[in-house]
């Protein structure tokens, strides 16, 4: 192996390139995230933010590059990783309730064939309590509001008890209360030494919520501490034109 992979780095990405035919979606992206980090990935639509997460999770075919979770490829570290896809990526009319969706977070740890039992149920209820959704455990998921659905998704990630969390736009379409509640949870995860990577849209809250930020537009524009790299100069390189760090979306 040419690159020196460090086992104490939570996420490591080298020269990652993903292309749709001849159109690059991600181009030679490098990324290193130390444990205990709250990292925002920001960039315009089509910048490859979701693709970056999906490539690390092996959900997208990559043209080049390597990705590591704590020094090993993802397939060897599945148990260390939790994933919260975009809320719109699933069918909320599916015949199931909130508790059952949260229990799905344990399926990875259970592996093939083993069924969720009392332990999984208890863990799921605990996670629902953490996101303040215990009263809605038996509620059919289509009857939940957008913010409640997002909390259920978050609980499903919490129940995985992972070291690294990938979340794709967890704040999309949620009310202010839910957004605050989610941020508090993310900060608790960081305090517990977990690493959280969030695809984020609202530039005005980056400095408040996150300690590191990655500016991405097919290529990596910048990655580092918010205080150092979240500058007007870097933002205009990412978005083109003038963008203010406080101007909102």
């Amino acid at each position: 192996m040419l690159v020196d992979v460090k086992t104490d780095t939570a996420i490591e990405v080298h020269d990652l390139t993903v292309a749709y035919r001849d159109r690059p979606v991600l181009w030679d992206v490098d990324m290193e995230v130390p444990p205990g980090t709250l990292l925002a990935i920001v960039g315009p639509n089509g910048a490859g933010k979701t693709t970056l997460i999906k490539s690390i999770l092996g959900l997208v075919k990559t043209a080049a590059g390597q990705t590591y979770i704590y020094g090993k490829p993802y397939t060897a570290q599945r148990h260390l990783v939790a994933y919260v896809p975009q809320r719109g990526s699933v069918d909320w009319d599916f015949p199931t309730n909130a508790l059952d969706v949260v229990m799905m977070g344990r399926y990875g740890a259970l592996g093939w064939f083993r069924r969720p039992g009392k332990r999984e149920r208890a863990l799921a209820l605990e996670a629902l309590a953490k996101v303040n959704m215990l009263d809605f455990a038996e509620r059919q998921i289509s009857q939940l509001s957008g913010g409640q659905q997002q909390r259920v998704f978050l609980a499903r990630a919490l129940v995985q008890d992972a070291e690294v969390y990938f979340m794709d736009e967890p704040f999309q379409g949620v009310d202010v209360t839910t957004e605050r509640a989610i941020v508090t949870l993310l900060q608790e995860l960081r305090a517990a030494g977990k690493t959280v990577v969030v695809v984020h849209h609202d530039l005005s809250t980056v400095a408040e919520y996150f300690d590191r930020v990655m500016l991405l537009n097919v290529r990596r524009v910048a990655l580092g501490l918010v205080a150092e790299v979240f500058t007007e100069h870097n933002l205009s390189l990412t978005y083109g034109g003038r963008v203010s760090t406080t101007a909102g979306r």
Binding site: L59, T75, R78, P85, D91, M104, Y107, G108
Partner: peptide, 13 residues
Amino acid sequence: LSTFDAGLAAAFG
């Protein structure tokens, strides 16, 4: 799981 959320099913292997 793969009917409800194919992405997570794939991520779980």
